[in-house]
Structure formats: structure tokens, C-alpha cells
Design a protein around this nucleic acid. Structure first.
Lengths: 146, 146
DNA sequence: CCTTGACCTTCCCATCATGGGAAGCCCCAC
DNA sequence: GTGGGGCTTCCCATGATGGGAAGGTCAAGG
């Protein structure tokens, strides 16, 4: 079917051109994130320029860590000419806040753990403040003690 | 069976005392992270003081973001009197490095996205640099442009 | 003694985004 | 017409967790 319906390509080519795997393209279709594409007579999915544009959009949104749900919302706004930029901004800022919360969590862990590692001599002897802490610490704070 | 084998408690009490859910205790047992506990005649799992100690260890390691696999290694070292602290420190430092890599990724996302959001006026008009970027950005870098 | 309610057991299913793989059809080049 | 690679669908797995059903057990109270 290649080059038979003009300019429409197969899923594998779409995957190569957009950086979204063929598996994922089918998955996004199955969860309703992407519309079902036109099929060739063979049953093969065929994608046109607009579809590739959408796939790249999804790919970039994933690279920014958006959830599938948020990407669905962003796609809908993208297609909606009467959207307000405030709606888009709200989704983006929510996500930034979630990212910053997650970063703070991970920094707590990394801080605690590198404090402990610093106090561990790391030689052939068994004594180790890291294990002592895991075994004895009264409770589960992840922030480095002040 | 409570108070019948001395000092041994049920899974629900162990969960309450350690902050690890009963579901998770069974799961950890099923994947071989924890040894199978002594069963009462009824078939109920019973836990003693040493088991609680282990459960708290696991809980704290999870709070620090260690994977199950790493926790298995840490538990083995904890029980091994002939361990070297260097082994423990290596696991901890690997994890710190992984945490810092992840933090850098998330910061890249948050940075890019808050840059974009800052340039989005966020009013009732549809024009939005965030959507423009998702739709047009040449490729998927997540670092804020320098 | 029997009921009630809380607790335990096992087993299965769902999440989220992704990959792996099998069985079978299709297309193109030789 | 044959071979190889690409496409289809369908099922399974991940990691760590929760939800829930069906059925056994225990302790307290009538």
C-alpha cells in the first residue's frame, strides 16, 4: 500500500519519524488518546501529516512528564480553537507543582542517604551507620537531620 | 492464637506496628524478600520481635526509595556479620546517583515548563506558547534553553 | 452453645506506560 | 513463487501497591 494512498505511511514509518514506538501508537489509539487512523485495504493503519504532527505533540508532552490523562486534555485544547490559554497554563502549572513535589521528595531521600554514606567509612569492617540507621531510626523521615 | 505462642502477633498487628500493610507483608514474603513466618495451627502467620525489626528495616529502606532488589541486598548484608561496610556504601551511593539523575530529569522538565508557562499570559485568548512549543519544538530536549 | 463481627487465608484483578513475543496475513523484490 | 520483513491481533510481564470475593478462625457477648 505504500505510496498508493498519497502521502500516507505505515505505523512503522510513523514510529521512526516521530520517535513513538509502533506499540505505543496502537496503545494510544486503544485508550482513545488518538483517533483510529484510516486503514488500507490490507487492514494496515495509514498515517498522514496531521497524524504525525499529533504523534510528535504527544511525544513531547511525554518528554515533559505529563500523564496520559493530562496529554488527553492538552490535545483537546490544542484542537479547540476557542480554548483559553488560561486552561492550558493551569494544566502546565499543576504539573510543574507535581514535579517540584516529587523533586523535593527525592532530594530528601538523596540528602539523608548521602549524609549517611558520608559517615560510613566504606572499608572492610562491618560497622556501618547506613545499616544502623535503617535498623534503628525511630521513624521514617526522609529529610537530612539538622 | 493471640498470646498462645508467647509474644507472637498476627499480620494485622505487625502491619500496624511497622507501617507496612498486611498486603505488602504477604507480597514481600511471596517474592522471597522475607522468610515465610511461623504459622499458627489455624494457618495464620505469626510474627515475633525479630520479624518486626526486619519489617521496619524494609519500610525505612522503601522510604529512602530503594528498589526491592536493593532492599534484598541490604537485608542480606544486614544479616551478614562478615559484611564489609564498603558493600553497603556502594549500594547507597549507587542509589544516591540514581536519585540525582532522576532529580536532574525532573528539574529539566519543570524548568522548561515553567519557562513556557511564564510566557503564557493565561487569559481567555487561545494563543499559548505552551501548546505552540508542544506542537512545534524541533526536538525533545527537556532542559531549559541556556 | 451460638451468633456476630473482626480478622485471617488464598486467589484474581487493576493500576501506568511500556516492551516481548506468538500466530497469521500482506507486500515487495528477486 | 518464494523469502524476508512488516503488519495485524492477542496475551503476558514489569514494580509496588490496592481492592475485593469466597471462605476459615477467633474472641466476646448473649
Amino acid at each position: 500500500m505504500k505510496g498508493h494512498e498519497p502521502g500516507r505511511i505505515t505505523i512503522g514509518e510513523a514510529a521512526r519519524l516521530t520517535g513513538v514506538s509502533a506499540k505505543m501508537i496502537r496503545y494510544y489509539e486503544s485508550i482513545g488518546l488518538l483517533p483510529a487512523p484510516i486503514r488500507a485495504e490490507s487492514g494496515y493503519r495509514t498515517y498522514g501529516a496531521a497524524d504525525l504532527h499529533t504523534l510528535r505533540f504527544v511525544r513531547r508532552a511525554r518528554d515533559l512528564g505529563f500523564s496520559m490523562e493530562a496529554i488527553g486534555d492538552l490535545l483537546a485544547l490544542w484542537r479547540d480553537r476557542s480554548r483559553s490559554s488560561a486552561q492550558v497554563k493551569a494544566i502546565a502549572l499543576d504539573h510543574v507543582a507535581a514535579l517540584r513535589r516529587r523533586i523535593a521528595e527525592l532530594e530528601g531521600m538523596a540528602g539523608t542517604l548521602s549524609d549517611l554514606a558520608e559517615r560510613c567509612c566504606g572499608d572492610e569492617r562491618p560497622d556501618c551507620p547506613i545499616l544502623d540507621d535503617l535498623a534503628e531510626r525511630p521513624d521514617a523521615g526522609t529529610s537530612p537531620r539538622p
